[in-house]
Design a protein around this nucleic acid. Structure first.
Length: 421
RNA sequence: CCUUUGAUUGUGCGG
């Protein structure tokens, strides 16, 4: 069993899900039966593949059919799956259930809950759990603090993060390079790049070594606030040191130049990354298409669409969104709609964001009735219009003086449970 | 033999 478990786990770590699951099936047929650890491993693999439903089915199976008693790790794994699937209430239910069933929680259980809630934007709930863990005999560790930082900074609660950072150090928990990356990213997304740069200094001063993720994070933050010169200097630092930039580093910088209106510079980086032996992915192409759009170069954008397909890289919903927006911005709403229809035919299903983009294009072209029709179509497809959908339409009707229509939509929006911002 | 944390691409209005 141990041998099988090791193999299954190994395949899982290599991303070879099917092989791992096949071994699991083989194991069931052989005289060597799966044990509780096997189930934990397989559940974990299913979670990593985003197959949460199958993971929870296995959880039920292991209890009901195999008669295994779930242990702390089992619960930690299943709780993580529920959280990743966006099912916080089910996760919380398991969190309660394990306690009642006599299975003790550990720091990882708390960390898993805290991180999951933070990712879902529920920092306050996460904080509540954080506040109780100590009394339950589980001391917060660096994972706990890093997760709370992530959650607080995601919603721009900078001051609280800084306070907690001091508390963490006072309590003798040393920040690690992930703590610093989290802080750097958080301050960057809140627009405070100087504080972020300060953290890079602190990190080095405290004897840690920034890694490629730290640098990429900071480069991204500097790009986002338009400080391309500093971002590029940092990239040069990366090169000067022993680091080899990866695809994410290059995409980050490429996107930064593109957003800054430097299409040629973006192209140059695209060439550089290929020279480095890195294969551009859909993110690289999308960023470059966006850059072409930014400077109004529609031809280049569509050439890139061709180019990526020739290179074996399939356009995705983001690719089409960029192109649709680009067409809308050049007063070609009709062509934008055609492309929208085509993307569907090419097997790329529009999501709410792509609907919102085309809708904005129609509104811009004063085609308000068509825009309303499009919203209805989105509903028919099972998509729920959001605050942006409604705001787009409302402002469109407002602009042309159709206040009554705007008001009708405003009421509908509230009926749908949206709170006007 | 198994579980938890950090970086890259798309959407509205106003400022």
């Amino acid at each position: 069993s141990v041998l099988y478990n090791t193999l299954i786990s190994g395949y899982g770590n290599m991303g070879k899900i099917d092989e791992a699951l096949e071994l699991f099936q083989e194991m069931k047929k052989n005289q060597c039966s799966p044990n509780a650890v096997t189930c934990n491993i397989v559940m974990h693999i299913l979670n990593r593949a985003g197959r949460y439903t199958e993971a929870s089915a296995l959880f039920a199976e292991m209890k009901d059919d195999y008669g295994f008693v779930p242990n702390t790790r089992t619960y930690n794994t299943i709780i993580n799956g529920y959280l990743k699937a966006g099912k916080s209430s089910e996760a919380l239910q398991m969190f309660e259930e394990m306690q009642k069933g006599g299975c003790s929680r550990d720091t990882i259980t708390y960390n898993t809950m805290i991180m999951g809630l933070c990712k879902a934007g529920k920092v306050n709930d996460a904080y509540g759990i954080f506040a109780t863990m100590e009394h339950q005999g589980c001391s917060p560790d660096v994972y706990t603090y890093n997760s709370i930082f992530y959650g607080l900074l995601k919603v721009h609660r900078l001051a609280e993060a800084l306070t907690l950072f001091e508390v963490m150090k006072t309590k003798g928990c040393s920040p690690d390079h992930i703590t610093y990356s989290t802080l750097i990213n958080g301050f960057c997304i809140a627009g405070n790049a100087d504080q972020a740069l300060q953290f890079l200094g602190d990190l080095k001063a405290s004897g840690h070594v920034p890694d490629l993720v730290t640098y990429s994070t900071l480069i991204n933050g500097l790009c986002k606030v338009g400080r391309m010169d500093v971002a590029y200097k940092l990239y040069e630092d990366v090169l000067e040191q022993k680091f080899v930039p990866n695809l994410i580093t290059m995409n980050t910088l490429l996107n930064g130049f593109g957003k800054d209106g430097q299409f040629d510079r973006a192209r140059q980086l695209f060439a550089e990354l290929k020279d480095m032996g890195i294969s551009p992915d859909v993110v690289s192409y999308n960023a470059l298409i966006c850059a072409a759009g930014k400077v109004g170069n529609t031809d280049a954008a569509f050439q890139l669409l061709e180019e990526m397909q020739c290179a074996g890289c399939s356009p995705d919903v983001v690719t089409y969104s960029h192109l649709i927006e680009l067409l809308s911005n050049s007063d070609k709403a009709g062509q934008a709609w055609d492309l929208f229809t085509q993307m569907e035919k090419r097997g790329c299903h529009p999501d709410l964001v792509s609907y919102n983009i085309l809708l904005a294009g129609l509104v811009k072209a004063s085609r308000l009735d068509d825009a309303c029709y499009l919203m209805e179509e989105a509903k028919r497809k099972g998509l729920t219009p959001d605050l942006i959908t409604y705001s787009t339409l409302i402002s469109g009707f407002g602009t042309v003086g159709k206040v009554d229509e705007a008001y009708r939509l405003f009421l509908e929006m509230k009926e749908m449970g949206w709170t006007p911002d």
